[in-house]
Design a protein around this nucleic acid. Structure first.
Length: 214
DNA sequence: TGAAGGATTTGT
DNA sequence: CAAATCCTTCAC
C-alpha cells in the first residue's frame, strides 16, 4: 500500500532504505534520472543530524550533450564528471545559487543527473527565510541546495552512508507503486539551457507539489 | 589579464 | 523582464 504522504503538502518522516551503490549509478544518465524519482537524498551534518528529501524532479546531462558542463573539455570544475559514478558534482550558478548533481555512467564518460526538486521530511528554520510553503522549500536546484546547506565544499563527495550526502532506494511501498504504474511521471525538455534544448531529458513526478516548474 | 556569460530565483 | 552576484571559461 502506497504511503499517501508521498503527495501530501505536509511534512512526513521518510523511512531509511537501502543505500544506492555506485554501480547502480554507473549507467547512462538518461536511465538513472527517471530511476532516481522516488528515491531519497540524505544530507548529514558533522554533528550527525540528518535530513531526508524525496527526489521528485531530475535532469540528465550526457557525453556529447552541448548543455553538459563537460561538453567542451575537462577542466578543474567539471573533472569529477569524467570519473566514475557515485560522486557529487556541485557548482555555483549566477553567483548566488548552488546546484547538486549525481555523477553517472562509466569512468571516462562525463555525465551527471541534476537534482532539481525534493519533498523534504523536515525543514531547518534557517533554510526557509521567506517562510514559504513546506513543499516549495526545495522546489528548484538552487533552493534544494540552500535548504540542505550544500555548497562548493560538497563537490566530489563520495555518495555513501556516513558522508555528508548519499542516496537511498525507493521504500518497498514506493517500489510497488512504481511497478503498479500508480505514480505518473512526466518527461519533458530541460530548463534554463540554451543548447541541446530539444532533448526530453527532464523527468518529474507529475502530481508532486514540490516540482520546480511545469 | 579582462570580459562575457551562466543547468537560478525573485520581485517589478 | 531585469537584478543580484561571482566563478569559470575563453579570448587577447
Amino acid at each position: 500500500m502506497l504511503d499517501s504522504s508521498f503527495f501530501s503538502p505536509a511534512l512526513h518522516p521518510i523511512p531509511s532504505a537501502k543505500p544506492i551503490e555506485a554501480a547502480w549509478l554507473g549507467r547512462c544518465a538518461t536511465e538513472v534520472a527517471p530511476d532516481l524519482l522516488g528515491c531519497t537524498l540524505v544530507r548529514r551534518w558533522e554533528d550527525g543530524r540528518c535530513i531526508r528529501g524525496r527526489i521528485v524532479e531530475a535532469e540528465a546531462y550526457t557525453p556529447g550533450d552541448p548543455a553538459c558542463h563537460a561538453y567542451r573539455r575537462r577542466t578543474a570544475r567539471n573533472a569529477v564528471m569524467f570519473g566514475p559514478a557515485g560522486f557529487s558534482y556541485v557548482y555555483l550558478i549566477y553567483g548566488m545559487y548552488h546546484c547538486l548533481n549525481v555523477v553517472t555512467d562509466a569512468d571516462g564518460a562525463p555525465s551527471a543527473v541534476l537534482l532539481r526538486a525534493l519533498q523534504l521530511e523536515t525543514i531547518p528554520p534557517e533554510a526557509n527565510p521567506r517562510n514559504e510553503k513546506p513543499t516549495r522549500v526545495a522546489a528548484g536546484p538552487g533552493k534544494l541546495c540552500r535548504a540542505l546547506d550544500i555548497d562548493l565544499s560538497h563537490t566530489e563527495t563520495p555518495l555513501k552512508p556516513g558522508q555528508s550526502l548519499w542516496l537511498e532506494h525507493r521504500s518497498p511501498d514506493l517500489t510497488q507503486a512504481w511497478e503498479d504504474g500508480a505514480i505518473a511521471v512526466t518527461q519533458t525538455t530541460r530548463i534554463g539551457i540554451s543548447q541541446g534544448i530539444d532533448h526530453p531529458w527532464r523527468w518529474y513526478v507529475t502530481a508532486s507539489p514540490a516540482v520546480s516548474k511545469r
